[in-house]
């Protein structure tokens, strides 16, 4: 982990009066697979577009491969592969024509063998026009076009959106292939936590435009825990566990979602509480993410009463 391929300094973006991204500070080292997570409207796509120079920041700055994002040189753009959200391509073009079009811009970097292999793997024909492809097939073409340019940095904005599980698995296989090549960096945003879990080294979570998590996947998985305790009486007023995100209780059981709380801290806290015992409940990444990004006091139907 040495060279930084992507870096931002207080990157901020307003759309009118709406704050979309608030002082984002991010450093992505070379060779990592970075998963960018966040709810709808959290600012993931805004961040990616700012990084690639498609939006102008309100304040702050960012660099890609050492070049200022608002003035990316053709050479830098040639080293960055980009898969847009929704995979927009020219509908009238056949895949073969699209290949030739893309190839013309990367005469030295174009990996024909890889492109052919990917088309073969995805069972796509060069004669097919883009408008006749399904969403999944278009995603495959998009990924093939991006990867065949042998990018040093691959940026993907929600690449598996709307794809079925089989296509998603194929997509991830392609990503893994790239990752296995030394020195390649991948930044991708996604809503599918299982995909992120499968491939990412590090994750960043943006919530309402603010970076709330920037850590390894392991750190994320181990830091967010659900603690359940069976009460023998009412908990004293002001009782709380360190690092509490949420707390819910029913007649006899109280649950806490805690972040970064150690076992020792839990022991110490519960030693003075009227509880029979406590246990840590396993959470999958999706649950962890939901709890991490849900604001406290959020009313939920058919769920436990939220303890203020």
């Amino acid at each position: 982990m040495g060279e930084i391929v992507l870096q931002t300094w207080d990157l901020t973006k307003y759309y009118g009066r709406h704050l979309a991204l608030d002082h984002l500070n991010l450093k992505i080292p070379k060779g990592t697979v970075y998963g960018l997570l966040g709810r709808n409207g959290s600012g993931k796509t805004t961040a990616i577009k700012l990084l690639l120079g498609f939006l102008r920041p309100t304040c702050g700055s960012s660099e890609v491969l050492g070049c200022d994002s608002s003035d990316l040189t053709p050479e830098i753009r040639g080293r960055v592969g980009y898969v847009c959200e929704g995979h927009p391509l020219y509908k009238w073009m056949p895949i073969g024509t699209l290949e030739n079009f893309q190839k013309a811009f990367y005469p030295d970097r174009w990996d024909k063998h890889l492109f052919d292999e990917m088309l073969d793997y995805f069972t796509l024909s060069r004669k097919q026009r883009i408008r006749s492809l399904s969403n999944g097939q278009r995603a495959q073409v998009s990924l093939a076009l991006a990867m065949a340019t042998s990018p040093d940095l691959l940026v993907m904005d929600d690449p598996t959106l709307g794809l079925d599980v089989v296509i998603r698995r194929q997509f991830l296989q392609g990503m893994i292939h790239l990752i296995q090549q030394k020195g390649k960096t991948v930044l991708f945003s996604s809503h599918i936590l299982s995909d992120v879990e499968r491939v990412a080294d590090r994750v960043a979570v943006i919530d309402k435009g603010v970076l709330r998590a920037d850590c390894t996947l392991e750190q994320f998985r181990t830091s967010i825990r659900k603690v359940r305790a069976e009460r023998t009486g009412s908990l004293p007023a002001g009782f709380d566990l360190p690092g509490t995100l949420h707390c819910r209780q029913d007649d006899s059981v109280t649950e806490w979602i805690v972040v970064g709380t150690t076992d020792e801290q839990l022991e110490q806290a519960f030693s003075q509480a009227p509880v029979k015992g406590f246990s840590c409940v396993a959470m999958n990444m999706e649950d962890q993410f939901i709890e991490f990004t849900t604001p406290s006091g959020n009313r939920r139907l058919f769920e436990w009463e939220e303890r203020p």
């Binding site: 498609f54 927009p88 391509l89 020219y90």
Partner: peptide, 14 residues
């Protein structure tokens, strides 16, 4: 309208 600006412009050209 069909959101292809980014695809067109993100390539090694000015």
């Amino acid at each position: 309208f069909d959101k292809t600006w980014a695809f067109t412009l993100h390539r090694p050209i000015r």
